[in-house]
Design a protein around this nucleic acid. Structure first.
Length: 271
DNA sequence: AGTGCGGCCTGTCCGC
DNA sequence: TGCGGACAGGCCGCAC
């Protein structure tokens, strides 16, 4: 589930409910996620409060008086709020319990996510300090992307999925953005005309904005779904539509593997 | 420095 | 119905 719109939606959804609530307990059932959850984390969190929740790329940052809890949801993670007495399932790895008898629970079947503690400025943490601009910020603009693509002959899809260039563009939205911009995902980044880079920037911003606008629905329905929320299927124009008719030209959508990732595109509309 | 892979995990689905 | 293999929305870390 977690592409940037979902992470942003989670941030918005849980923020009001958990900030300024005293943390009464921390339960860790599985420490081994992408990296092992540090041992000192209970000591840091219990009796403190989250003063704000921030996001950088797909990393969530929970601010406290003594540092930041950082959570990444990986491929299959999600965060939800429950009453404290809710029974835990097999993949419920971490629970942050609050004095008001609610808890924030991290569930992550594939365990590609992470939970880390950062004492100092989180933006200087090694996982964050080299990240590219936020896609919805004005820093992600033509001058920037043109400069970034000039040095790269790798295919454009891998470039926009590279978090050092721009954060938050995962496989689905990379496919969708390239379709909207009419760009072949295999095309070398340094061969794309400026006017097409401009289209790509607009497409990325629009796709992500639209998805964030739909986010509430996603989250609400997530518990009933297989991880592909209903709105996705309706909104997506190429992803998961192999051999179906292109919505622009009617020809078949093609599926290829690019950098080991499923890549859907229309060979006629994307050049 | 840029690029391309391997690897981390479990669950699901598809073909035999 | 069981089984093996491919695949899944991410991304770091390492070779080259």
């Amino acid at each position: 589930m977690p592409e940037l719109p979902e992470v942003e939606t989670i941030k918005r959804g849980i923020g009001k409910q958990i900030t300024h609530q005293t943390i009464s307990n921390l339960i860790i059932r599985q420490r081994q996620l992408r990296w092992r959850i540090p041992n000192n984390i209970e000591k840091k969190l219990i009796h403190s409060q989250f003063t704000a929740i921030k996001r950088r790329g797909k990393y969530l940052l929970f601010e406290t008086d003594s540092g930041h809890l950082m959570i990444h949801l990986g491929m299959s993670g999600y965060l939800r709020i429950f009453n404290s007495d809710q029974a835990a399932g097999k993949h419920d790895h971490v629970e942050i319990h609050f004095a008001n008898h609610t808890m924030l629970r991290l569930t992550d079947p594939r365990r590609f996510g992470c939970v880390l503690w950062i004492n100092d400025d989180p933006l200087q943490h090694k996982l964050l300090k080299n990240l590219g601009p936020e896609p919805l910020s004005k820093d992600f603009n033509l001058d920037y992307l043109f400069a970034a693509t000039q040095a790269r002959k790798a295919n454009i899809k891998s470039v926009i999925m590279n978090s050092q260039i721009v954060v938050g563009v995962g496989n689905i939205y990379a496919c969708e953005s390239l379709f909207r911009a009419g760009i072949d995902p295999q095309k070398p980044a340094n061969q794309i005309a400026q006017k097409n880079l401009e289209k790509l920037i607009t497409a990325i911003k629009n796709v992500l904005t639209e998805a964030i606008d739909q986010g509430g629905t996603t989250l609400k329905d997530f518990q009933h779904s297989d991880g592909k929320p209903g709105y996705f299927k309706q909104k997506l124009r190429v992803y998961d539509r192999r051999d179906q008719a292109c919505m622009k030209c009617g020809n078949k959508i093609k599926l290829i593997r690019l950098n080991q990732r499923s890549t859907y595109f229309c060979p006629d509309c994307q050049r």
